[in-house]
């Protein structure tokens, strides 16, 4: 399988703190990468560099083999033009921990918005796609309500539908179930799992090891901006060769 996204020696600093420290990562088309690690280890920051919400300090990002997002000016990395960045972002869907639905738009309008303003689709076409996506996440009957009337699980599924409506080539999930009541976690994981089954390329940050083991092709353990370990779920969770920091982390989770 060909590589869809590649990070080369990516560094992101916040002042003196290095949140992402010389990371190399290749994500293949259709691959499911799960990133785990303690709080503050840089998981979100890394994920956000992948759709240019976070500007890297050095390194290179290749999307579909093309270096992109940055130009070099006077030896420094500078973000590329807004037009190019927006085009890139529309191809990489992102789902946030806090859903971030647009509260002033109905569920349907949330899912139509990007199609109309970014992809310049007609209203009718956008509506049709939106209904399809809402069906996919299991919410075909809540299209005309405002987000405030939904449960957390429903909100997150609408957020997934909103991202999917852009027909992205890959999806980023930043702790998609961390803000949910435990009984609502299942419905969101079900939705993500069905996406995985369709072959969607995904990078998922989560603290849910069960889900990680079930859905991941690759599990990455991150700490202090660095990858400590990386492997298949089997390698990762098999007791005999587990990294001491990871078992410590897993023990804490339990």
């Amino acid at each position: 399988m060909e590589t869809i996204l590649e990070l080369k020696q990516v560094v992101k600093r916040f002042g003196s703190l290095t949140a992402v420290n010389h990371i190399d990562l290749k994500i293949k088309r259709g691959e499911k990468v799960v990133i785990v690690g303690p709080s503050g280890s840089g998981k979100s920051t890394l994920l956000r560099t992948m759709n240019f919400l976070e500007t890297i300090d050095s390194g290179e990002i290749l999307f579909e083999k093309q270096p992109c997002g940055y130009i070099t000016r006077g030896g420094n990395l500078v973000l590329d033009s807004q037009k190019k960045l927006c085009a890139l972002r529309s191809e990489i869907g992102m789902v946030f921990q806090q859903f971030n639905l647009f509260p002033h738009m109905t569920v349907l309008e949330n899912v139509m918005e990007g199609q109309i303003t970014v992809l310049n689709k007609s209203k009718a076409e956008a509506k049709e796609t939106a209904y399809k996506m809402l069906e996919k996440v299991g919410l075909p009957d809540r299209s005309s309500v405002y987000p405030i009337t939904l449960s957390g699980g429903q909100m997150q599924r609408v957020a997934i539908a909103r991202a999917l409506a852009m027909k992205p080539k890959m999806m980023l999930f930043d702790e998609p179930t961390s803000a949910l009541d435990p009984e609502l976690v299942g419905e969101v994981f079900d939705t993500i799992r069905s996406l995985a089954d369709e072959g969607m390329t995904m990078v998922i940050v989560t603290h849910n090891m069960g889900f990680a083991r079930e859905v991941a092709d690759t599990v990455i353990f991150m700490e202090q901006g660095d990858f400590i370990a990386q492997g298949t779920p089997h390698e990762f969770f098999s007791a005999d060769e587990i990294h001491p920091r990871i078992s410590e982390f897993l023990d804490k989770l339990l």
Partner: peptide
């Protein structure tokens, strides 16, 4: 307005002016 709104708009590929016009200012 919560910064998450700007991020969500950016993440689906909206420009600054689209984000302002469609997402932030109406709120």
């Amino acid at each position: 307005i919560d910064h998450g709104q700007t991020e969500a708009a950016k993440a689906i590929g909206m420009t600054y002016s689209q984000t302002m016009r469609r997402v932030i200012i109406p709120q």
